[in-house]
């Protein structure tokens, strides 16, 4: 049986960051160790105030070949963006 530790993905929120960002991967036998390893590997330069770790096997990712059907339809929905609407200056701040 392989004794290779599972792969984990590491997400870190910086001091002024609003969300966690993917910073890299590492190996660890369990979640607790993964958290500690993430601290030691990925915050050596004061990079973070919060860490998430997720076992890589548990991540479901979209397929690159679905890029068209998944993302292109939203390109035509320009009306979802505030800049689509012309509001006269006289109406005040909005």
């Amino acid at each position: 049986m392989s004794s290779e530790w599972p792969l984990w993905e590491v997400f870190i929120r910086g001091q002024y960051g609003l969300s966690h960002r993917h910073v890299g991967s590492l190996h660890a036998p369990d979640a607790e160790c993964a958290l500690r390893n993430a601290r030691d590997v990925y915050t050596r330069r004061n990079e973070g105030v919060s860490i998430w770790v997720v076992e890589a096997a548990h991540i479901t990712a979209s397929s690159p070949s679905d890029k068209g059907p998944l993302f292109e339809p939203s390109e035509s929905k320009v009306y979802r963006h505030p800049s689509f609407y012309d509001i006269p200056d006289d109406a005040g701040a909005m």
Binding site: H27, R36, N37, D40, V41
Partner: peptide
Amino acid sequence: PVLEEDIALAN
């Protein structure tokens, strides 16, 4: 024994 531990020990 493994890179992660190497880095942690150095810390």
